[in-house]
Computed example of a mutant assay.
Amino acid sequence: MNNAAFNVLKILDRESGKISGEKISEELGISRSAVWKHIEELRDLGYEIEATQKEGYHVTKRTTRLLPYEIKRHLRTKKIGSEIHYVTTTPSTIWLGKQMIREIENDISEGLVILAEEQTGGLGRLGRSWASPAGGIWTTIVLKPSIPIQKAFMIMIAASVAVSRAIRKEYDIGALIKWPNDIFIGDKKVGGMHLELSAEADVIHYCLLSLGIDVNVSVEELMPVLNREVTSISEELGYEVDRTKFLARVLTEFERRYTLVERNEYDALLREWKSLSCTLERRVEIRTLKKTFEGEAIDIDDHGALIIRKDNGKIERVIAGDCHIL
C-alpha cells in the first residue's frame, strides 16, 4: 500500500466537504497529477471518491477491506496494534508471523498485528483445517510476555474473554466461551484461537496468538469445509458489519486483559472467563488421545485445565483434549 495515497486520504477525511486537488497538492508538496494518481490508488482499494472539476474530491464510501489505516481510525490501544502488517492472502497469518520472526525478530515490536483478508492454509488446534475465506478476521498478534511459562495459557484466557466481550458490546449478542479455545453463539461456533510460543527453560521468547472470527462470512461457504455447526456475526444479525471497527474493539478488549496477565492479576481474569463459559456446569464428553469419557464440567484450575466430575464421582483433570457439550 502506498503511504502517500493515505496522506491524501487523511486530508479528505479531515475535510467535512469537498477539497480541490490544488489544495491537496499544495499541502503535500506534490503535483496535481500525483494527487489524481493517489486518488485512483484509493479507488482500487475500494474507496468510492466523488470528483468534480470545480469543487474537488470527497469520499462517499469507505473500503470494506481490513486496511491498517481504517483500523487505526477506531483503535484506542497503547501497544496492541501499534504496528499492523496487512496482506490480501497468505497460507496463514501465524505462518507469516514465524517467517517475519526468522527474518527480523529483533525489529518486531510486541503487539504487532498481522492481518490477511483470507488464508489458504489456515490450521486450528491439533492441525485441523481452519476455513478462512474473505469476510472474516484472520489475524496473529506477536507477544513477548514476561510471565512464567506455565502461565502462558492465561493469554488464551485473555483472548477468549476479549473476543466474547467485543461481540457482546458491539452487537448485543450473547457470545460465550467453550473450553479450551472456541467462541460460540448459541450452539454454533463463531470463532477460535490458537497459541504458539518459543521458550527456553522458564523464559518465553515470544508468543504468536492467532484469532479467527467469522464476521461477514457465508455459513454455506464454511459448512462443507468444517462439517460442523457454525455461524457468523452477519448471519446472526442479518446484515454485514464494519470489520475494522469490530477488530479495533477486539484488540482494545484484549489489551485490557493482557495487561492483567502481565501484572499477574490472574484471579480477576479467571472469574471473568468463568462468567462467560458455556462449558462449566454442563454435562460434557471429553476426548483425549488416550480415552473418551463423560461427566460434569465443574471448574478450570489455575493452569487452565478443565475439572470434570465423572459419573462414578471421581474428579478428572483435563489438560488437553476435545470437549463436546451434551
Rank of each mutant, 00 (worst) to 15 (best):
I108Y: 11
L209T: 07
L197S: 14
I39H: 06
K23Y: 07
K314C: 11
R128F: 03
G21T: 04
T252R: 01
I49Q: 13
E170D: 05
A34V: 12
W138M: 07
I94L: 13
G238I: 03
L126D: 01
I213W: 12
Q99W: 15
G212V: 12
L176R: 14
L211P: 09
E110S: 14
D172W: 01
V87S: 13
E27F: 08
S234P: 03
I101H: 11
R228M: 15
S146L: 05
G135L: 04
I286Y: 01
L75W: 13
E240I: 11
K291F: 02
G17L: 00
T60Q: 05
P180S: 14
S92P: 13
V8Y: 08
G321M: 04
E236T: 10
I183K: 05
P68Q: 14
I177C: 05
P68L: 13
I307R: 06
R165Q: 14
K98N: 15
P133Y: 11
E50V: 06
M193F: 06
N227E: 14
K169G: 00
H38Y: 15
I204N: 03
T89K: 10
H205E: 09
R165S: 12
I39L: 02
L326G: 02
V35W: 10
I24M: 01
D182A: 07
E285W: 01
G121A: 15
